[in-house]
Simulated scan of single mutants.
Amino acid sequence: MLEQPVTLELLFEQLGLPADEKAIEEFTRNHQLPAEVILPDADFWSDGQSTFLREHWQQDDEWIVVIDKLNQLLHVESDKQQTTA
Protein backbone atom coordinates (compact mmCIF):
# COMPACT_ATOMS: atom_id res chain seq x y z
CA MET A 1 0.00 0.00 0.00
CA LEU A 2 1.22 3.49 -0.80
CA GLU A 3 1.93 6.03 1.90
CA GLN A 4 0.97 8.99 -0.26
CA PRO A 5 -2.34 9.55 -2.05
CA VAL A 6 -2.51 8.16 -5.57
CA THR A 7 -2.87 11.01 -8.04
CA LEU A 8 -2.65 11.43 -11.78
CA GLU A 9 0.68 13.19 -11.25
CA LEU A 10 1.98 10.24 -9.23
CA LEU A 11 0.80 7.84 -11.95
CA PHE A 12 2.72 9.81 -14.58
CA GLU A 13 5.80 9.77 -12.36
CA GLN A 14 5.41 6.00 -11.91
CA LEU A 15 5.21 5.63 -15.69
CA GLY A 16 8.41 7.67 -16.07
CA LEU A 17 6.63 10.58 -17.75
CA PRO A 18 6.74 14.31 -17.01
CA ALA A 19 4.12 14.84 -14.31
CA ASP A 20 3.36 18.53 -14.17
CA GLU A 21 -0.12 19.74 -15.14
CA LYS A 22 0.96 21.13 -18.51
CA ALA A 23 2.82 17.93 -19.47
CA ILE A 24 -0.15 15.74 -18.52
CA GLU A 25 -2.54 17.92 -20.50
CA GLU A 26 -0.23 17.84 -23.53
CA PHE A 27 0.26 14.07 -23.28
CA THR A 28 -3.47 13.36 -23.10
CA ARG A 29 -4.22 15.73 -25.97
CA ASN A 30 -1.50 14.20 -28.19
CA HIS A 31 -2.22 10.54 -27.42
CA GLN A 32 -5.94 10.15 -28.02
CA LEU A 33 -7.03 6.54 -28.52
CA PRO A 34 -9.77 5.02 -30.67
CA ALA A 35 -12.63 3.60 -28.63
CA GLU A 36 -11.63 0.01 -29.43
CA VAL A 37 -8.08 0.38 -28.01
CA ILE A 38 -7.85 -0.35 -24.31
CA LEU A 39 -5.42 1.72 -22.31
CA PRO A 40 -2.64 -0.86 -21.68
CA ASP A 41 -2.68 -1.87 -25.38
CA ALA A 42 -1.85 1.61 -26.69
CA ASP A 43 1.20 1.45 -28.94
CA PHE A 44 2.97 4.37 -27.26
CA TRP A 45 3.59 2.56 -23.96
CA SER A 46 6.80 0.69 -23.27
CA ASP A 47 6.42 -2.94 -22.19
CA GLY A 48 6.97 -1.92 -18.58
CA GLN A 49 4.40 0.88 -18.69
CA SER A 50 1.85 -1.40 -20.33
CA THR A 51 2.46 -4.13 -17.77
CA PHE A 52 2.12 -1.68 -14.87
CA LEU A 53 -1.19 -0.35 -16.19
CA ARG A 54 -2.59 -3.80 -17.00
CA GLU A 55 -1.61 -5.37 -13.66
CA HIS A 56 -3.03 -2.57 -11.55
CA TRP A 57 -6.18 -2.36 -13.64
CA GLN A 58 -6.77 -6.10 -13.25
CA GLN A 59 -5.98 -6.04 -9.53
CA ASP A 60 -8.46 -3.19 -9.01
CA ASP A 61 -6.13 -1.76 -6.36
CA GLU A 62 -5.46 1.79 -5.15
CA TRP A 63 -4.23 2.81 -8.63
CA ILE A 64 -7.52 1.99 -10.37
CA VAL A 65 -9.14 5.41 -9.86
CA VAL A 66 -6.31 7.32 -11.55
CA ILE A 67 -5.81 4.65 -14.23
CA ASP A 68 -9.51 4.96 -15.05
CA LYS A 69 -9.13 8.74 -15.12
CA LEU A 70 -6.20 8.44 -17.55
CA ASN A 71 -8.23 6.04 -19.66
CA GLN A 72 -11.06 8.59 -19.86
CA LEU A 73 -8.66 11.40 -20.72
CA LEU A 74 -7.13 9.36 -23.55
CA HIS A 75 -10.54 8.45 -25.01
CA VAL A 76 -12.11 11.94 -25.06
CA GLU A 77 -12.05 12.22 -28.85
CA SER A 78 -13.48 8.74 -29.43
CA ASP A 79 -16.25 9.51 -26.91
CA LYS A 80 -17.08 12.71 -28.80
CA GLN A 81 -17.23 10.81 -32.07
CA GLN A 82 -19.59 8.19 -30.64
CA THR A 83 -22.03 10.81 -29.34
CA THR A 84 -22.15 12.63 -32.66
CA ALA A 85 -22.51 9.49 -34.81
Rank of each mutant, 00 (worst) to 15 (best):
T84D: 11
E36R: 11
L11K: 07
Q82F: 14
D41F: 12
L73R: 06
V66S: 00
V76H: 10
T83H: 12
L17G: 04
T28K: 06
T28M: 08
Q81E: 15
W63H: 01
E26D: 14
D79S: 13
K69P: 12
A19M: 07
Q81N: 14
L70K: 09
V65P: 10
Q59G: 14
Q81T: 15
G48D: 12
D41V: 08
S78M: 03
A42L: 14
A23E: 04
A19V: 02
L39Q: 04
F52E: 01
I24T: 04
D41P: 02
E25H: 09
L73S: 08
S46W: 05
K80P: 09
S46K: 04
M1L: 08
A85E: 13
L8G: 03
I38S: 13
E26M: 11
A23T: 03
Q72C: 14
M1Y: 01
F12W: 04
H75T: 12
Q82R: 15
L17D: 03
W57A: 10
T51Q: 14
G16T: 02
K22R: 05
E21W: 10
N71E: 15
E25I: 09
F44G: 02
E9K: 03
A19W: 03
L15Y: 04
Q49T: 08
Q14K: 13
P40F: 06
E26Q: 10
E21P: 06
E62N: 08
S46G: 08
L17N: 05
G48Q: 10
L8C: 06
T28H: 03
S46E: 02
T7I: 02
A35V: 11
G48T: 05
P18K: 13
P5W: 03
E21T: 10
P40Y: 06
A19E: 00
E25T: 09
I67P: 00
P18S: 07
V37A: 10
Q82P: 09
G48I: 07
V66D: 00
F52S: 01
S50W: 02
L53V: 05
E77N: 12
L33Q: 02
A42S: 10
D43A: 14
Q49C: 05
K80I: 11
I64H: 08
W57H: 13
D60I: 14
A85N: 12
E9W: 00
P5E: 07
H31K: 08
A19H: 07
F12P: 02
A19F: 05
T83V: 15
P5D: 04
Q4T: 11
P5L: 05
R54G: 00
E9M: 06
L15W: 00
S50G: 08
Q32T: 03
F44L: 06
Q82W: 13
S50H: 10
V37L: 10
L8H: 05
E36S: 12
V6Y: 01
Q49M: 10
N30L: 07
L2Y: 01
Q82N: 15
A85Y: 12
I67A: 00
D47H: 13
A23D: 02
S50N: 09
